[in-house]
Simulated assay, not measured.
Amino acid sequence: MATYKELKAQMAELEAQAAMARAAEFQEVLAEIRAKVADYGFTEQDIFGRASGRPTKRAKSGAPARYRDPKTGATWSGRGRAPSWIKDAKNRDRFLIGSQGCALEDEREV
């Protein structure tokens, strides 16, 4: 029966042989694949599918904007931290979208 050291040496030798065999076959296989891709006109999406290993980004279905800054046109949904243009306002009604408040502010600036 072989000793642990002998088996370990055999394993290392086999790993080296496997790496050499893989390297030798690698270029052949790659050349074959490239030739078939060129012949058949495959695309990356045909081969790897839609995701290609990465998750797709989905558009956020956030809340619609409720407030608009009359000066810059910036909007805010009313959720989360208030932007600087509205955070100190005591009455936010004048910034509401679709109300008389925002329309009146626009008319005064003209």
Rank of each mutant, 00 (worst) to 15 (best):
M1N: 03
M1L: 13
M1R: 10
Y4Q: 01
Y4C: 03
K5H: 05
K5D: 05
K5Q: 14
E6V: 05
L7H: 10
K8L: 04
Q10G: 07
Q10H: 04
Q10W: 07
M11D: 07
E13C: 02
E15N: 09
E15A: 14
E15R: 12
A16E: 15
Q17H: 12
A18Q: 15
A18D: 14
A18Y: 10
A18M: 14
M20C: 09
M20H: 08
M20A: 15
A21Y: 09
R22S: 14
A23Y: 08
A24N: 13
E25R: 13
E25V: 08
F26S: 11
E28Q: 13
E28Y: 12
V29A: 15
V29H: 11
V29E: 11
L30S: 04
L30K: 03
A31M: 10
A31H: 06
E32I: 10
R34P: 02
R34W: 00
R34K: 08
A35Y: 12
K36I: 14
V37C: 01
V37Y: 00
V37L: 09
A38R: 15
A38G: 03
A38T: 13
D39C: 10
D39Y: 09
G41R: 04
G41W: 00
T43Y: 00
E44D: 09
E44S: 15
E44A: 05
Q45L: 10
D46S: 00
D46V: 01
D46M: 07
D46G: 01
I47V: 03
I47Y: 03
I47S: 04
F48M: 12
F48W: 15
F48A: 12
G49P: 02
G49A: 00
R50V: 12
A51D: 14
A51N: 14
S52W: 09
S52A: 15
G53S: 13
G53H: 05
R54P: 02
P55S: 11
T56M: 15
K57I: 13
R58L: 08
A59L: 09
A59C: 10
A59Q: 12
A59I: 08
K60R: 14
A63R: 10
A65K: 01
A65Y: 03
A65R: 02
A65D: 10
R66E: 06
R66T: 11
R66Y: 07
R68W: 01
D69N: 15
K71E: 11
T72L: 04
A74L: 04
A74E: 14
A74V: 02
W76Q: 00
W76H: 05
S77D: 14
S77N: 12
G78P: 02
G78S: 05
G80E: 04
R81P: 12
A82E: 05
P83N: 00
S84H: 12
S84I: 13
W85P: 00
I86H: 01
K87G: 02
D88Y: 12
A89T: 03
A89H: 03
A89N: 00
K90M: 10
R92D: 08
D93E: 15
D93I: 06
R94C: 07
F95N: 00
F95I: 04
F95M: 08
F95V: 06
L96T: 00
I97R: 00
I97K: 00
Q100F: 04
Q100I: 09
G101R: 02
A103N: 03
A103F: 05
A103K: 06
A103M: 07
L104R: 06
L104K: 08
E105I: 09
D106L: 08
D106W: 10
D106H: 10
V110P: 02
V110F: 11
V110I: 11
